Amino acid sequence: MTDNSFYLDALVNNDERIIKVIYQNNFFKAKSFVMKNSGQQEDAEDVFQKALLQMAVRYKNEKFVIKNSFEAYLFTVCKNLWRRELNKSKYRVTNNEVFELKDDNQDIALAVLEQKRWELFTESLELISENCKQILKLYFAKLSYADIMDKFNYKSETVVRQRVFKCKNSLKAYVKKDKRFKNLTTL
Rank of each mutant, 00 (worst) to 15 (best):
M1Y: 08
M1D: 08
D3H: 04
D3Y: 06
F6E: 10
F6T: 06
Y7G: 00
Y7C: 09
L8W: 01
L8E: 04
A10P: 02
A10I: 04
N14R: 04
N14V: 00
D15E: 11
D15V: 03
R17Y: 07
R17L: 08
I22K: 05
I22M: 09
I22G: 04
I22N: 06
Y23T: 04
Q24I: 05
Q24H: 07
N25C: 08
F27N: 04
F27T: 00
F28D: 14
A30E: 00
K31E: 15
K31A: 15
S32E: 14
F33G: 02
V34Q: 01
V34G: 00
M35F: 03
K36C: 13
Q41N: 12
E42F: 08
A44Q: 11
E45D: 12
E45W: 03
D46C: 04
K50N: 09
A51D: 02
Q54Y: 02
M55F: 03
A56E: 02
Y59P: 07
K60W: 01
K60L: 08
E62F: 10
E62D: 11
E62R: 11
V65P: 02
I66M: 03
S69R: 11
S69K: 13
S69G: 12
F70E: 01
A72F: 07
A72Q: 12
K79H: 01
L81S: 12
L81T: 09
E85S: 08
E85F: 05
N87M: 07
N87V: 05
K88W: 05
K88E: 14
T94M: 04
N95A: 07
N96S: 06
E97V: 09
F99L: 13
K102L: 09
K102C: 04
K102R: 09
Q106W: 01
D107S: 14
A109H: 06
A109L: 10
L113T: 02
Q115E: 12
R117P: 01
R117C: 05
E119R: 09
L120V: 12
T122D: 14
E123Y: 05
E123V: 09
L127D: 05
L127H: 08
N131H: 12
C132W: 03
C132Y: 08
K133E: 08
L136T: 14
L138D: 15
Y139S: 07
F140K: 08
F140A: 11
K142G: 00
L143Q: 12
L143M: 10
S144D: 12
Y145A: 14
A146F: 11
A146I: 06
D147H: 13
D150C: 08
K151H: 13
K151Q: 11
F152K: 09
K155L: 06
S156F: 05
V159N: 10
V160R: 06
Q162F: 08
R163W: 09
R163T: 14
V164E: 04
F165I: 02
F165H: 14
K166M: 11
N169I: 06
K172W: 00
V175I: 15
K176G: 00
D178Y: 01
D178N: 15
K179F: 06
R180I: 00
R180C: 03
F181D: 09
N183W: 10
L184E: 05
L184N: 07
T185Q: 15
T186D: 14
T186V: 12
L187K: 11
